[in-house]
Amino acid sequence: MNKDRFQTLADAFGGSISRWPVALRDEAYAFTASSPDEAAAALASALDLDEDLDAVERPSPSHALRQAIINAAPRARPARGPIQRWLTGAGVGIGLVTAAAAGIVIGVDLSASSAGEDAVLLAAVYSSGLLNDGGDAS
């Protein structure tokens, strides 16, 4: 590693070699040993900028932001115990039985309605004399 390369790396990665890419550190430390003055000058300038960058206040999340994010998170379904599971099963069973019973009642009712409608239709036909006319013809 020569002086220019060392300077470029200090410009890019800052004044602390421990924060440079791992693959470059051994060579960098070797350069500091062989050219301590040049290395120190390059690192000092980069360290000044590191300090300036670290002078910026780190933003801290507000409680309101934290809570808004947490409140929007996925919710776990509450765990169901054996009694809840039994009640759910029983509920489904009761529902099926009720639905079947309702079906029978509606079916019977529809049949009754249908029979009533037939009687009304038949009376209308008799009163119109259609059946009697047919009887005379035969």
Binding site: P61, L65, I69, A73, R75, A76
Partner: peptide, 23 residues
Amino acid sequence: RVGRGDPAAIQALVARKLPRMLQ
């Protein structure tokens, strides 16, 4: 755990990542 809706994991993930994302 977050995917299963674990409240403790949600809190932990927010504590771990929110400051970094905000920054």
